[in-house]
Design a protein around this nucleic acid. Sequence first.
DNA 1: GACAGTGAAATTTTT
DNA 2: TTTCACTGTC
Length: 756
Amino acid sequence: MTHDAVSSRHPLPEEYLSQLNPSQQEAVIHNGSPLLILAGAGSGKTRVITTKIAYLISCKGVDPHSILAVTFTKKAALEMAERARFLEPAASRTQIKTFHSFGAWFLRLYAAEAGIDRNFTVYDDEDSMTLLRKAVPSLTKPEAAEFAHKIALAKDYCLAPDSPDLGTVSTHESFSCIYQAYQDRLRSTGNVDFGDLIMLPVQLLQNNPAVKQHMHRCFSVIMVDEYQDANTAQFLLLQQMAGPDTYICVVGDDDQSIYRFRGAEVQNILNFPRQFPGTTLIKLEQNYRSTPQILKPANEVISRNANRFDKELKAVRHDGEIPVLTFLHSQYDETSFCAEIIAQAHEKGVPYHDWAILYRTNIQSLGFETEFLHRKIPYTIVGSLKFYDREEIKDVTAYLALLANHRDEIAFERVINKPARGIGDKSRLKIIAAVRAGASPEQPPDLLQASPELPGLALPAKAASGLKEFNSLMKELAAYLEQGQQKQIPLPVEQLASEAAGRQSAPLPRTEQLSYLIQQIIEKTGLAEYHNAHDEIAGTQRFENMQELANSASLYPLSTGGLLDFLDHIELDRTLEQNESSDTDAVTLITVHNTKGLEFPRVILTGMEDGIFPRQGKNDEEIEEERRLFYVGITRAKDMLLMTSCRTRNRFGKTDEMMPSPFLLEINPGTVKLLGEIPLVFKRNPGNNQTGTEHPLASVWKKGRKIYHDDYGYGWISSTQTLSGEFTITVQFENGLEKRFLPEYQKNLLTPADEL
DNA sequence: GACAGTGAAATTTTT
DNA sequence: TTTCACTGTC
């Protein structure tokens, strides 16, 4: 249910303004100079942005169409739109988009100027890698993965293949050539990758004054949420979009910057006042979400970071329960501990949806799924369900992508022989070569025109008949699309109006839904039988998954426009729409990254072990980012926080001994309650009032302890020392060598079983 | 060109 | 432990 249903109760501006604290009000009312709002976790950031949108429209007379609000996730965009609409109905005409969907919209508007196909689709990482291997066949798979990642990173920094700064991304001598080859191949498909969605608009705005002017006229207000996670390309996009009269307002929290690996630059938010002269800075430090007991460890932990704006969250709420930390023997104990706590609380009336299980890596969700299924505890996994990455789903979407853009080589390769039509590797390459040979700048390659009659194409009889079959199949499918009228790509104003109108219109007749086309694809291509057969052998549910994909397209019209919207939706919002109706009472399983912007009454932060969280092999700067991630995790909790740490964890079928996460040592004793058996490393020296206590590792690696090292054999610890904060041990080996080791090398040191 | 058998790699985090 | 890519045979 949306808030529109109660539109008669939209609050008046003086009502919603009076609910804000002074800093929040100041942020809402501020106008003119650029504005940076530093909004701590739980400080009512979304409320400020949505109120600001409403205020600009109803009190400042700003045209809602000329307000652009940008977020990072679709979920955040939807929430923002809904809340703004609740405060001010006219806000439904505001452009609230993710960075990437804005880029996609922009590029469709200026496809010709950007040199891409107007019907482009977006290649995901897997497609990009496939394309790279086409462009540079000599690359092995891991090499291709590495370079594809570097290319994506280069685009995050808005660096072209010939950029002099490319060395900051990769110093490999051929990187520039490889990047260029990839780029050429990508342009020949007419499609774009994720990075292009930001980088191409930046380049177009930089080089085309007419486009830039048009954008400046279009938007008088630009707001960016979660600015701490903007990368360089996104910063440049904002800079280009900002005209002399544009009001710029960014909101973020440097302590919650957690996407460095994706090119996010904390410097963007730290440098904002310099990049936009005259900036007003407003800090929101009042935390309305969590109890003081939860904020205490959060503040303790984050204060260890050096590179940050100085600030501290202040609790508004009354006292609650002290957070709990528990050490468990194995990951199995961890899952059953969580299940048990949740089940017990449920018996006392705590709903399942009060709970969220947080973990560092997706793989950790597996154990919880197994346990919860077994115990019949309902759960939902947020994000990364990887629904759209499934083989059968990618098969169907490849057919769709090819129908949208006839130049899509990657989609063509995927489906030409799936299900099998007797067209093997050699024939496939021949067909593509023939199509490319027949293309010219005026006549771009059209893979739907691929037929055995193409000049210079000599195929074995089997492949030729297969291609003929494929050719007529695609013609038949394309005909369905033809029936739907070509939807024009409208200007922002028209599009928003039509979108708003579209939402309220009656459901489409079945044969006018995009679902109908997908249904036809599943049946007529033979994917139905193909995957049905697999289902019977492997007990999977690929056929149902394809049906689900078809169903999810029922709101899209059967037209090229509808198809493009649908494919954008798939590529730009990978989180499957889950029925968030309040009648589904379920525990949330979620990665810490995915919790950004979310809150839960009860949070369990799991896998608090060294090597897992923080992940191993992190340098100092990366440790700071991991620490911010830990901070994000803690600050999601409203009423109750639990942390679990396991002594052993199974990886690759082996059982590894784990150490507690060093982050746990950064929380002062007394800030958390320890539950159950406490490992040696966590015991402070009893009766010894030396405040610093010994290094936590010292109780495990004691003098005299016998050890075994992979390279040096048996030995014993002759002394231990803490050198500039690093705990080290000196080992006397039986072969006479004496070696000193840093903690990170201690994983090579195995203690013989009899010692344990 | 399709399939079965073998060996190595796999786990960040996401738009 | 599981999964995926590669190799060799039919």
